[in-house]
Each structure stands twice: as C-alpha cells, then as structure tokens.
Nucleic acid binder design. Structure first.
Length: 272
DNA sequence: TGCCAGGCTTCAC
DNA sequence: GTGAAGCATGGC
C-alpha cells in the first residue's frame, strides 16, 4: 500500500515515547508490532508512506492505528503565534501522530514506565511479549503479540519480577487480574466520559495521575488528556514559569503535550 | 561511578 | 490536603 499523507513522519512517531514496539530497520524503514500483527513501514519521501499490508488490513487496522483520517495541520497551526517555544516544538515534531493503541497494552506498558527510561521500558515490554505473548504469523518474523490479560494474570509475581519489572511486578499482576476477571472492563471503559475513565484507571494499583493520563491518551485516544511527566514539568517550569496555558488547547491538549515532550528530549532543544 | 528515568504508595503532619 | 521517603533496575 502506498499512502500520500501530510504531517506524518514515522521516525518522529517511533521516537515519541508513546509506542515501544517500533524497531528501526534502516534510516527510513521500521517494523511495527501492534494489534497482533507485524507491519513493515517505510517512508521514501516526506509525503509518501509504504505499508506492507493488504487493503483490508489497511482499512481495518492501520488507517485508524496511525490516525490517518485526522488532519494534524490543524494542531500545528493552533500553536499560539507569540509562543516561540511551542512554535519551535510543533515545527520540529509536525510529523507526530497520536496512535490508537490497545488499551490493555498501554495500561501495562505505562505501569512499567514509572521511573524507567525509554530503552528500559522497551526491554521490559519485549521480554513480556517473548515470554508470554503468542507468536505472530509468519513464523520467520519471530514476532510475538503483546500478552493477553489472561496470560499475564497467570504468572506469579516472581516470574514477572524476573522480567526486570522490579517493584512494579505486583502492580502488573494485579492489573492483569483485574482485566482478566472482568473487574476492570476495558471495553465498557471505551464508552465512558473522560473523567469517569480517569477515576476508573486510578483504582488500579500502580496507576497514578500521570500513568492514567498516558493510558487515556495513548490507549483510549482521549486527546484532551495531558500527562505530566518529569520532562513536561521541566518544560513548564523553564518555558512557562510553572503554568501551561491548558485552556487555550482545550479538547486536544494531549497532542500539544506530545509535541512538547518530543521537542524537550531532542538535541535541537538542548542545543538551541 | 553516580545520577536519572514518561511516578506511585505510604506515612507523617 | 500537602510533603517527603522509599522503591528495583538499567541506561548513559
């Protein structure tokens, strides 16, 4: 499949800290494992995207996953003209997308994420997948799906801890058990309003305000959610005197947050 | 080698 | 309600 798309950059997305199963194959090609599928994706030029999938999978899976139907130029243009920092951030990260990822995968992944850097998170997630995930066809890809709630819930805390989860191991097991048992119904949660969903996620041990907002933004596509991590707080302190004008970006502040996060971690920002 | 990482829980006050 | 200690482990 060849797609023409503006404001889409696979490298930006892969390094944006919202997904942990994008593997760089070459400068312009990535392997993505998501939705129990493997996808090879390349970008020969700025506005062209090549996906090795059929038309059905594209329409059913990858078009929504990459949020191809949303016009991100609207978000880019919305940055306040007098906010030089944000202008730089959206220009630097204008290929950003908010991926429509699996809710359970995001819940577990962001429970793991606390007090870990991104390479360490990737390592933990990959270990969970190879240990407890189902192999994905074709076998020569040697790819594993993210574990089901049942598969994770069946593991002992010690087994999980052996995946370098540290003190998060019991959090992961409890969260998986809650979902596997139906006590936490992620399908029903899709229909909840933002505040109800936020409160529901906070009932999971190991989930606090930051993780809940990440799960909402990346696992439920609630783009009004605004996760505040150490990087975002650092930027708000350094560039906004401690207060970010959230109300200006009401309804999609999570997208703006993502541009800021990506820019904050870049060499372009630190070298400016 | 020491500091830091997409924080949360617990426990004072 | 606010503030601070403690937490397991790996990357840089």
């Amino acid at each position: 499949m060849h797609i023409t798309q503006n404001n889409f950059d696979i490298k930006t997305i892969a390094n944006s800290g919202q997904c942990f199963r994008f593997h760089k194959i070459s400068e312009q090609e990535y392997r993505v494992i998501a939705k129990n599928k493997v996808l090879h994706l390349s970008q020969p030029d700025e506005n062209t995207c090549v996906l090795d999938c059929n038309a059905h999978d594209f329409a059913a899976i990858w078009q929504p996953y990459f949020d191809f139907d949303t016009d991100y130029s609207v978000f880019v243009r919305s940055a306040a003209p007098d906010d030089i920092f944000l202008q730089n951030a959206v220009q630097y990260g204008k290929g950003m997308r908010i991926l429509r990822q699996d809710a359970f995968e995001m819940l577990i992944t962001f429970i793991i994420s606390q007090r870990k850097n991104i390479p360490a998170i990737k390592q933990c997630v990959e270990t969970l997948c190879t240990q407890f995930g189902r192999p994905i066809e074709p076998a020569e890809e040697r790819a594993f799906a993210f574990p089901t709630p049942q598969a994770l819930a069946a593991q002992s805390v010690d087994t999980l801890r052996a995946c370098a989860l540290g003190y998060r191991a019991p959090y992961v097991q409890t969260a998986a058990k809650m979902v596997a048992s139906g006590a936490l119904d992620l399908n029903a949660a899709q229909k909840m309003d933002d505040e109800s969903l936020y409160q529901l996620l906070l009932t999971v041990p190991g989930v606090g305000p930051k993780v809940a907002n990440c799960v909402m933004l990346f696992g439920f596509y609630r783009i009004a959610s605004f996760p505040r991590d150490v990087w975002i707080n650092r930027m708000i302190d350094a560039e906004y005197g401690g207060v970010f004008p959230l109300e200006r970006y009401s309804g999609y502040a999570g997208v703006i947050q993502q541009y800021i996060f990506y820019y904050a971690r870049s060499n372009e920002y630190s070298a400016r």
